[in-house]
Design a protein around this nucleic acid. Structure first.
Lengths: 235, 235
DNA sequence: TCAAAAGTGTTGACTTTACACCCATGA
DNA sequence: TCATGGGTGTAAAGTCAACACTTTTGA
């Protein structure tokens, strides 16, 4: 086999732009919140006739003058009003046929937010918090994107302090455990969970107690580090 | 804050293409081989004056009619003549300034190949196998891409049977351990390594022995499953 | 017979799991 | 006083890390 053609690496400037700048790139955000022992994802009804009645994730095309990561932060800000959010790139989906009306490659991010955040402001009535378990089918390849993000989240959650972004500033260990159980879809032993979590040194004991609960109040904790982490720090 | 503008999700068809189809997308491949107790990556000298003297990874623009994954397979085939190769998407790099001559977003893949594969055929004299340890600086953001891929490889290597792609079909446990030690940059205890690897059930004992070695010959093993895995299977 | 690497088991440290009872609060 | 969840420790099992001697081959 001999392929002496097509060796174009790093020679953008020598290629006809007309041929190649014909693919759009977008970001899609899996924006997750936790409430009522359920993970919910922010979705909207697709307005493409191909996907009539199906929910889609929130995304947008990347602008020529914005970084890829910035585009996902922008989507999040535009849709939720939230600025400092845990956001993580997961995977890029680039099948030729994934978008019915053109070639669009999309990079998926997931964001974890507190659904009761004071500055949360959903500015479009079409937006809804859909329990992830209810989503069997979505527009485009968004179900695959969602599943991939959830898988990544599950892989991360025991080793990285990310779930705190789903909770209010003060929370009890029971609330924390509920979040873990929901994400991992499995029950955890209370004593073992507490030991493990405390060992990780992610928590500050606030020396406060729950109030107005119909049972013995639990201690309240806060996440030790700021729960906002820029995604780009590692790269 | 009120952002009622810019809610364009999934409405490609309503946007002026001229504004947005102005970003190119490429793939960059970190093609790794193992020899001489060193990991080597396939590089070429950058021909951009901005990066004179620096090595770059192998990549190419994605064509409008090919899947993102296919593009990385194509780069690999064009550059090495190899068809069935372990290839994995790692991360997408999208800084506005990463390419000096235009906006190019690039998805990074790593590939593991056997540097002595019979059909390996480097068809460009500019290509070289550079030991990864020697690369302090590269063209574009390729050093960051390389480091990210190596980090991902290190995270995967104990849990996924990927290193076999770096070795010939028959290998001794010592060779296998050498590869692990090289990737992880740490020495491993021989007895513990053997126990752990055998437990994983990745190997077939070939009932053959090394020949022509200046010491007691070791048993030869083969990887149990085909060492070729399509990357897209999970998604 | 020497040099080089192959092959092999046990022990202690640590981690993980399983498991049950009493306590504080609101209704 | 009852219902609800809070809070706590221990023992057994499993995993991981450290460690040394004998064997087989080619030179």
């Amino acid at each position: 086999m001999n392929q002496s053609t097509n060796l174009k690496t790093a020679r953008i400037e020598k290629i006809s732009h007309l041929d190649y700048f014909n693919i759009a790139i977008s970001v899609d955000c899996v924006i997750l919140s936790y409430e009522d022992r359920r993970l919910r994802v922010l979705t909207m009804l697709s307005d493409l006739k191909e996907f009539a009645g199906l929910q889609s994730l929130l995304g947008d095309l990347v602008r020529p003058d914005e970084d890829l990561d910035s585009a996902s932060y922008r989507v999040l800000l535009e849709r939720t009003g939230l600025k400092d959010v845990y956001l993580r790139q997961v995977h890029t989906f680039g099948s030729v046929t994934r978008h019915p009306s053109g070639r669009v490659i999309s990079t998926a991010y997931y964001a974890l937010i507190n659904g009761r955040h004071e500055s949360l402001q959903l500015n479009d009535h079409a937006l809804q918090w859909t329990p992830v378990k209810n989503l069997k089918k979505m527009a485009f390849d968004h179900k695959a994107i969602l599943d991939t993000c959830l898988k990544t989240l599950r892989e991360q959650v025991m080793d990285h302090p990310v779930v705190f972004n789903l909770l209010p500033g003060k929370f009890s260990l029971r609330q924390l455990q509920d979040v873990y159980e929901t994400i991992l879809s499995q029950e955890l032993d209370r004593r073992n969970f507490r030991k493990k979590i405390v060992l990780k040194d992610w928590l500050t004991d606030l020396d406060e107690m729950e109030v107005d609960v119909p049972h013995r109040p639990g201690r309240l904790y806060a996440f030790r580090e700021p729960s906002i982490k820029p995604i780009s720090s590692v790269f």
